[in-house]
Amino acid sequence: MEHYKQVGVWIDHSKAHLIGFKSGQVRLLETVESPFESIKRIEGEGRDMSRFSPNPVHVSNNEYKKHHIVQNEINEYMRMMEQKLANFEDILLFGPGTMKERMKNRLREKKAFEGKWLSVERSDKLTENQLLAFVREFYKKEGV
């Protein structure tokens, strides 16, 4: 397999598409699925209310527990992405939502990513051909 130094990563909370760029050519390298589930239903779980009030304003500890489960899943996803991106020199993060910014901030904190070029762009959901075109146009515009 060819070795790519430049990569575009379309990322959101559910998955990431890694698109390699080399000599004006782009290729979808890999799709990484996130362990994050947006809606949790734990077997046997009751309603999110306190036992003393049917009022949904008074929530139980389920919310606290669910929040920590979600945070652990997102951290695991980011660890997986760090390992995938470690071999690239130029990294373009793009996509909807906030995940691209969270990923950039995490990579900036890691010593392994010091000196690497990171860029963040906003985009919506794209088809595979649109993903490839987005990365190709970005790197051509940057003159890399």
Rank of each mutant, 00 (worst) to 15 (best):
V7C: 07
G46Q: 02
A16H: 06
R136N: 12
E128I: 13
S123N: 06
H13C: 04
E37V: 12
K84S: 04
W10G: 00
E142T: 01
N55W: 00
F36N: 03
R79M: 07
N62V: 06
L126G: 01
K66N: 10
W117M: 12
E114S: 15
L92Y: 07
F36Y: 15
N75E: 15
E121V: 06
G46S: 05
S23I: 02
E73I: 02
S23V: 03
K22S: 13
K141L: 05
L131T: 01
A16Y: 02
N105W: 00
Q6V: 01
I42D: 04
N75Y: 01
M81C: 04
I91M: 06
Y139R: 03
N72T: 05
M1P: 08
N87Y: 07
F52Y: 11
E101K: 07
R108T: 11
E30L: 13
R102T: 10
D12N: 15
I91V: 12
D12M: 04
S53D: 10
S23L: 08
I39P: 00
V120M: 10
Y77I: 05
A133P: 01
K125N: 09
H17I: 06
S14D: 10
Q25F: 08
K22P: 02
F36K: 04
P35A: 03
G95A: 12
N105F: 01
P54A: 11
V120E: 13
M81I: 08
F134E: 11
L126V: 03
E63F: 02
N75I: 01
Y64N: 08
H58G: 03
R47W: 03
F36H: 07
Y64K: 13
S14G: 02
E37F: 02
T31S: 12
I91C: 08
W117K: 14
F138W: 15
E114F: 15
L18I: 07
K40M: 07
S123H: 04
D48A: 10
G8K: 05
K111V: 12
E114R: 15
W117P: 00
V26P: 09
R102Y: 14
E89K: 15
S53L: 08
L107A: 08
G46I: 00
E63K: 13
Q83P: 00
L85P: 07
F52G: 15
K15Q: 12
F138G: 09
K116R: 15
K125C: 01
V70P: 00
M80C: 02
M1K: 08
F134P: 10
T127K: 09
R51D: 11
H17Q: 09
R108F: 01
N62T: 08
L132W: 01
Y64G: 00
E2A: 13
F113H: 11
L29I: 14
E128Q: 14
G97L: 10
R41A: 12
W10H: 04
R136Y: 04
R122Q: 13
F113W: 09
K15L: 06
L132D: 02
F94C: 11
E33M: 03
M81D: 03
S14T: 08
R102P: 00
F138V: 03
G44P: 05
E73G: 05
E73A: 14
V120I: 11
K40L: 15
R106S: 12
E137K: 13
F21S: 06
F88W: 06
D90E: 12
E73S: 14
L132V: 03
L93K: 08
K100I: 06
N72A: 15
Q6P: 00
I74H: 04
T98P: 01
I69D: 05
F94R: 08
N61Q: 10
I11C: 05
